[in-house]
């Protein structure tokens, strides 16, 4: 589904990703862990097509298409979703309006019929209820005046509504208390299915107690230096990232 090969990327002239490779198949959940500055968020942003990130080498294919040449909205329509680390506030733009515009644009791009406002309201109200979101969410402006936790939950809510095939969660756990963390994890777990994949970027192992990954990768200095199953995350928690760096260093020496 997603195949990243030897990806090099930089922002403002500074190289962040230095040869990252990763393959994700439908139904899998991959966790990407790593210290601050390792390039975790850069990976998410490059996959979503954020302007300003420059890919200097390597390739990313998604369903056999070259993902890097696609505009952000085309990627979204193709089923790629990024849950932002810092979701932006858009004053004056009503959430319902925004979500309907997004969903219909994606449906239209995929050749599906657009939803009229009644159909959409029914759908979105159902999701609000399922996800335990406050009902006034739909009347508020996009992310405006939301607390940090609310913004993160809203990202997962959008994911549930837009039903992407590949969801990249960029530190969706940071800044959440334990209850919110569980809600976020429940939201993700509810969406897990054989044809949907997740890339969960996180700094802490904590989230992975609730979203159990199939694979765990350690990102350090722009590359994946270690891959394993869920137990790797627990080892990391026990030993810290310095341990990985030592391992990697030893490897390089050998």
């Amino acid at each position: 589904m997603l195949k990243i090969e030897n990806l090099h990327a930089r922002i403002a002239g500074k190289e962040i990703l230095k040869g990252l490779s990763l393959e994700v198949n439908p139904g899998e959940v991959h966790a990407i862990m790593g210290p601050n500055g390792a390039g975790k968020s850069t990976l998410g942003n490059v996959l979503a097509g954020r302007p300003g990130y420059e890919v200097t080498a390597g390739s990313v294919s998604y369903d056999g298409r070259d993902l890097l040449t696609l505009e952000p909205e085309v990627r979204a329509a193709a089923g790629v979703f990024l849950a932002f680390q810092y979701p932006v506030e858009i004053p004056g733009v009503n959430n319902t309006y925004f979500l309907r515009a997004a969903l219909n644009a994606q449906r239209k791009a995929r050749g599906e019929e657009e939803l009229d406002s009644m159909q959409f309201l029914k759908l979105v109200r159902g999701k609000v209820k399922d996800m335990g979101m406050p009902p006034d969410l739909l009347n508020r402006a996009v992310n405006e005046g939301f607390s940090g936790g609310e913004k993160k939950r809203n990202e997962v809510f959008q994911m549930a509504l837009l039903e992407p095939r590949l969801a990249v969660l960029d530190e969706t756990d940071s800044g959440l208390d334990i209850d919110a963390l569980k809600q976020v994890a429940d939201g993700v777990n509810a969406l897990r299915s054989p044809d949907r994949a997740f890339v969960v970027i996180t700094h802490y192992q904590r989230l992975l107690d609730y979203i159990v990954p199939d694979f765990v990768h350690v990102l350090s200095a722009g590359r994946i230096v270690e891959s394993g199953d869920a137990t790797l995350a627990r080892e990391l928690e026990a030993h810290g990232y310095a341990w990985v760096r030592e391992q990697a260093h030893a490897e390089a020496q050998a």
Binding site: A48, G49, R50, P51, E71, P72, E73, R75, A76, A77, F81, L82, F84, P87, V88, I90, V93, Y97, F98, A101, A102, L103, A105, Q106, A109, V142, Q158, L162
Partner: peptide, 17 residues
Amino acid sequence: FYCRSRGIGEEDAVSMI
């Protein structure tokens, strides 16, 4: 970018904002 990453085309995103 936020709007576009949700699938909304650039021109629509601009008029929305």
